[in-house]
Design a protein around this nucleic acid. Structure first.
Lengths: 320, 320
DNA sequence: GGACCGGATGACAACGTTGTCCAGGGGCCC
DNA sequence: GGGCCCCTGGACAACGTTGTCATCCGGTCC
């Protein structure tokens, strides 16, 4: 910028004014500056700008794994909203590890991001308090975090309830639930919806038909259930990865899965799912974050997004 | 930092030394400083550090679309390599728009990223030259860019050749090619492999069996071909999205697709694919970038990754 | 004609960090 | 005991930008 000023024969500050479209610069002078900028290939140093102004025009996004289609869809939505607000996105995958989540968040804070969107891996977020006090906005997405802050989640219990009720409506009375580890909020909420649907239909909750754990063990769990003396006639799977694991077993009981996924309609039969919109989640969380960043006051909000049951065949198979 | 120095009763510079693990600080003094840091909840301001040192410990990643599983897999691999090198990743989706690509790259450069990994949307990268001169390292991934720079791509022509030869070996003589727009490097390379395989088998290249264009039109193109007087008995699809579009038509000719995808093995029949490893691509590109960033000299390299044919059933269907 | 005003421009400090250089003090060697 | 060096710590400038305030000039109003 110094060089540009010299080349245009003006003061540093005048160049700064031109670069920032500040008023009060003679058009002729501005033109000279613009020419000098073009000739020297000058580009503003954002680090210095950030240092001076305190705003980075960057938000941090901590998700579980970018490679998971659910989170990559969400990422894209966040990115789009950030773009509209002139911000960039620093993102990182926590891999469901609370320590890694914390490390990522603190690194982002050291970079002075203006705001954070976090898919919490852990439940303790006290480490965030000093940052929030320091004025960094934060929104929890997909799951609630360990403190009062804006949160965007989907209707996990309601969605699971709808899916299980759908199976019950088609005549099933022995419905298995394959869910993620019970310690994960979404998993326990969905289990709650499952139990409520059974209870409302007056069906007994049979614990041997419930398996919670990582997706890579869901297939084995399903096989074991189906091989047991009194096998389930239908299965409700608690997330997209588990649905896929269940499909991969080769067994084809009646099935409704939480989360839509590509090719669900191409399989035979098509896979009935309870769909939540990852892009809606990302967009809503990002928009709320930018509202907070622009100073919107008020207590922490908790937004719940609806789910949608999409019948495609697998959930309409009657019991044998 | 000033406050920390005051609290610990030492000079600014001493705090800096402690924070950066520089030698030459009395352990007792250091401990006092550490205590003051903890008490005040101090965290280093990275912006100022970047401004002073010139290195941001950040790399920029420009891909086509994070929501595409291929690119999200690649993203994750880049992120992991960056993590190992203590760097963060700024990423953005170009959406196959050269202008947006350029804008993203220049924004990243203004943020003074240390290096760039770019999946080129356009073919003209002259805008990068000043940045390269300024010392920013850049690696093109998935496709070559419009200038001499390190490049990591997969063996597109060879992979397509292998896939088509596989169909020929199973007796097919009328094989359609559904590819992305011919202006996209990977698409034209794969088409080249297709033509070479036909030529080597002494088969005529029938232009009416070749359709190039965006994935959302591939389904209609396939239907049209199959409805024609002399339909193809097999199809080679030029990327994952097109494979899915073809499957969605409901027609099930013999098929080999470029790119592996989740559930390819669950469909009936399983979908035979030519797999390239998105994570290998990301990892290789990132590792090369970090080598360059650490000063490795030498001319621009071009690394080509192999592909792998995975027979699953759809590619082994004989002609009717 | 002088006071005043507003637009255009510039000088300067400050943001928070780190690199460079210097100073003081204590130990060691001759 | 003097000279020297090492260890520790501090003062200061610089990174590139922007906010604040001052200056200057031409024009306007009374």
């Amino acid at each position: 910028m110094k060089d540009v000023a010299a080349a245009a024969g003006v003061a540093l500050k005048t160049v700064s004014r031109v670069v920032n479209d500040e008023p009060g610069v003679n058009p002729a002078t501005a033109e000279r500056v613009v020419a000098a900028i073009a000739q020297l290939g000058y580009r503003r140093n954002e680090s210095a700008r950030v240092l001076r102004r305190g705003r980075t025009a960057t938000i941090g996004l901590v998700i579980e794994d970018v490679a998971d289609p659910f989170y990559s869809g969400m990422s894209r939505a966040v990115e789009d909203v950030a773009l509209r607000h002139g911000s960039l996105v620093l993102s990182g995958s926590s891999g469901e590890d609370p320590l890694r989540e914390r490390e990522l968040v603190l690194t982002f804070c050291a970079r002075r991001v203006d705001g954070l969107i976090i898919v919490p891996a852990g439940t303790d977020h006290d480490y965030l308090l000093p940052e929030l006090d320091a004025g960094i906005a934060a929104v929890f997405a997909d799951r609630p975090g360990g403190l009062e802050a804006d949160t965007v989640i989907c209707d996990n219990a309601g969605g699971a309830h709808a899916g299980v009720a759908h199976l019950i409506r088609h005549g099933h009375r022995r419905i298995a639930f394959l869910g993620d580890s019970a310690s994960i909020f979404t998993a326990s909420e969905r289990l709650r919806g499952y139990r409520r649907a059974l209870a409302e239909a007056g069906l007994p909750a049979n614990e041997s038909l419930i398996a919670m754990g990582p997706a890579d063990r869901a297939g084995a769990a399903l096989c074991a259930m189906l091989a047991a003396a009194d096998p389930p006639t239908a299965v409700f799977t608690g997330n997209g990865r588990i649905t896929v694991a269940a499909l991969r077993t080769g067994h084809r009981p009646a099935l409704v899965g939480f989360d839509d996924f590509e090719l669900a309609d191409v399989l035979t039969p098509g896979v009935t799912v309870v769909a939540q919109a990852p892009d809606g989640l990302g967009r809503t969380a990002a928009e709320m974050l930018f509202r907070r960043m622009s100073g919107e006051p008020g207590p922490a909000e908790r937004i719940q997004l609806p789910t949608r049951l999409i019948p495609r065949g697998s959930g309409e198979i009657p019991p044998p």
